[in-house]
Design a protein around this nucleic acid. Structure first.
Length: 695
DNA sequence: CACCCAAACTTTTTT
DNA sequence: AGTTTGGGTG
């Protein structure tokens, strides 16, 4: 995917230096290292080579810890490292014997590695090792229940929504900052609720403990605190000789704290990243982590920059370089490419989002005519809903596409239902799941569900005790069936695949009762059953699925999509690490790039600049920045149906404009001759259309 | 107490 | 356009 395939086995001088890591005397150097890898500079390849090199030198794969940003990247890295090892061994002894594929067991995201370390060392820190991991939705639901219980909802002023509450909480944890500071900086409109929020969060934390649940933030938080326990830290330190961390620019205080806690001297530690692509501050990522990394150690860590870009041609890089140089912080590494010629990036001004959609469809179809498959083109945008108008147009014209960062498979109500049954069986204390399932029974609502859960608590979480609970008559049969299944699963009376079958057979009825479109939904359920069998156990299934949710429905069924050629629609955030021949960026106007909520604060503004930079540097050949003069803003309901006039993005300064080719769409009026043809044609067509009635 | 409907209110990006 | 809240009905 990345870079030029021909270059896979060959490294340039900078990459070689980053891989080899020897000191002046030619001795192996394990002192801390920072690799600044600009966009498209073959970062993945370099890390893969480095890993392969270590293994070829005799290092055990089990002693290498590889931390990536997303699971996707981990898979790519591992297969590439294996390819390199295979090639090298073949070169060395020319034997036909294929080596056993290396299995890197310690490879994953900070969250998944943390989960694993916590399960292993749970007893040492007084934690149950079979904790349930809650995804964002579970956590939000739990927040919701608690804020109702605390009576924060029935007040004259409206309390923040459950998701907002969770966002605030999450930010406090991940940045390790006080609630008041977070509210002032990022949620000023919730400031008045700070006392209630504090109570809410305290109760939420307690509830999680009672129900043996850890949310995403807890995984890091617990691990961070575990790293402060000297004996455990030492044990984990001894477990690893080399630690490689990718996308370091997007780590937060907790993640950096985990690293520094376990590996304070930085021995064997390599972090890789690009501060110019740090775009996750809303998740409390802190660019300072990468900016100050070298000074964390004495002597300071070495820094190697990769600056040769293998993706784009020079005029795209010129734009990126110029954009970044107008920013106010960072390592400011200018990228260069050997491809000196290429079309100047375009800034296309269109009237509104309808015209924007038209322009894109027209241009990308023209490109396809020229031989650029849809797959090699992508539409990028700031927020998920920005592509709504375009999606309509694509559907109308039968252009297949896949959207990343949109509605997730796991967010579909029926998928959540099914998972809830399994989760509840897995962890009877998991109230959120229990509540969700029970409410699906006919004539069972919040009150009855609550009673059932209380009963279960009283009876020490033994499911069979529920069998004679007085549920409403209508619910009786289903209720009994449900409890029997859940009980059997919880006790592991049957194997994993039988468990799934039983759950589905109960849920099928519930699905039919609760959803009109149950036919369509059942398809997803069957798909989920298929996926479940790829995992060896229930615990693995639940953990993996919450930590690495599939990006789109297409991910699950594998490659056989509707068509083999399809267009990619993606948020800029989800587009990280990817590349396409032609890239179209939607709504490049003030309000989006930069986002209006970020424009006030200097640091957020810089992040917006980097976000635009990420979008730009995805393009290999053609880059189209589209600037609608008016666009629809759904939040602006104050005056009803309203368009907002998008001012030109403040990032497009005069210097930047020099590097862009500014055009209009529609390009021009028809000339006289064309007008005549058009008029004649439409007259004829109208005649024909009416003609059929006049026969 | 469950369920349905109408009105009010919305801050983007995601492991 | 989707979520959340409150009110009315059965």
């Amino acid at each position: 995917m990345l870079g030029n395939m021909l270059d896979t086995m060959q490294l340039n001088e900078q990459q070689q230096k980053a891989v080899e890591c020897k000191d002046a005397a030619g001795m192996v150097d394990t002192s801390p290292l920072l690799i600044i890898a600009g966009a498209g500079t073959g970062k993945t390849n370099t890390i893969a080579h480095k890993t392969a090199q270590l293994i070829l030198n005799g290092e055990s794969p089990d002693k290498i810890l590889l931390v990536t940003f997303a699971r996707r990247a981990a898979g790519e890295l591992s297969s590439r490292a294996n390819r390199i090892i295979e090639q090298q061994q073949y070169k060395k002894n020319k034997n036909k014997q294929r080596h056993q594929p290396i299995k890197m067991s310690w490879m994953g995201t900070f969250h998944s590695i943390s989960a694993r370390l916590l399960r292993e060392h749970a007893t040492a820190i007084g934690l149950e090792s079979d904790f349930t991991i809650m995804d964002r939705n579970d956590s939000a639901d739990m927040m919701d229940v608690i804020r109702h219980e605390l009576n924060f909802t029935s007040t004259d002023r409206r309390f923040p929504k459950k998701k907002t509450c969770l966002d605030i909480y999450s930010r406090c944890v991940n940045s390790q900052q006080a609630l008041e500071d977070i509210l002032d900086a990022h949620f000023p409109y919730c400031r008045e609720w700070h006392q209630e929020l504090k109570t809410l969060f305290a109760t939420y934390a307690k509830a999680k403990m009672e129900q043996i649940c850890l949310d995403y933030d807890d995984l890091l938080l617990y691990c961070y605190h575990m790293a402060q326990v000297p004996q455990i830290a030492q044990q984990i330190r001894d477990q690893f000789d080399y630690i490689l961390v990718d996308e370091y620019q997007d780590t937060n205080v907790l993640q950096a704290g985990i690293l520094m806690g376990f590996f304070p001297t930085g021995k064997g530690l390599t972090v890789v990243g690009d501060d110019a692509q740090s775009i996750y501050s809303f998740r409390a990522a802190n660019v300072d982590n990468i900016l100050t990394f070298p000074e964390q150690f004495s002597p300071p860590a070495r820094v190697i920059s990769l600056t040769q870009n293998y993706r784009s041609h020079q005029s795209i890089l010129d734009l990126s370089n110029a954009l970044l140089s107008e920013g106010s912080e960072g390592y400011k590494v200018a990228l260069f490419s050997e491809r000196k010629s290429g079309a100047k990036p375009k800034l296309v001004t269109v009237e509104d989002d309808t015209k924007q959609a038209e322009y894109i469809v027209e241009t990308l179809l023209a490109a396809r005519e020229q031989g650029v498959e849809l797959k090699k083109q992508a539409i990028l945008f700031r927020a998920s809903h920005h592509s709504d108008r375009l999606e309509l147009e694509l559907t109308r014209r039968n252009i297949p596409y896949v959207k990343h960062g949109g509605l997730k498979f796991l967010e579909a109500a029926h998928v959540k239902d099914l998972l809830s049954i399994i989760r509840w069986a897995d962890n009877p204390k998991h109230k959120i799941s229990a509540f969700r399932i029970l409410k699906l029974l006919p004539s069972v609502g919040p009150k009855i569900a609550d009673k059932v859960i209380n009963m279960l608590t009283e009876k020490q979480y033994v499911f069979s005790e529920l069998l004679d609970f007085p549920v409403p008559a209508l619910a009786k049969t289903l209720f009994l069936e449900l409890i029997k299944v859940v009980s059997a699963i919880g006790n592991n009376e049957i194997g994993w695949s039988a468990q799934v079958n039983q759950v589905i057979s109960v849920y099928k009825t519930l699905l039919e009762i609760n959803y009109d479109d149950h036919f369509v939904r059942f398809g997803d359920i069957e798909q989920l059953a298929q996926i479940s069998q790829q995992f060896s156990s229930r615990e693995r299934f639940l953990t993996e699925l919450t930590l690495d949710p599939p990006q789109s429905t297409g991910d699950l069924s594998g490659p056989p999509l509707i068509d083999d050629d399809f267009l990619i629609l993606s948020t800029v955030h989800s587009a990280k690490g990817q590349e396409w021949n032609n890239v179209y960026v939607l709504n490049v106007a003030d309000g989006n790039f930069p986002n209006e909520y970020a424009a006030g604060d200097k640091r957020s503004l810089e992040e917006e600049r980097r976000l635009l930079n990420v979008a730009i540097t995805r393009a290999k050949n053609e880059l189209h920045l589209i600037h609608p003069m008016r666009y629809w803003v759904p939040e602006q309901q104050r005056h009803g149906d309203q368009h907002v006039y998008g001012a030109k993005s403040r990032f497009l300064t005069e210097g930047i404009m020099q590097l862009l080719e500014a055009t209009q769409f529609p390009r021009r009026e028809l000339n006289e001759k064309e007008k005549k043809v058009a008029t004649a044609a439409i007259t004829d067509i109208k005649k024909t259309v009416l003609g059929i009635w006049n026969e």
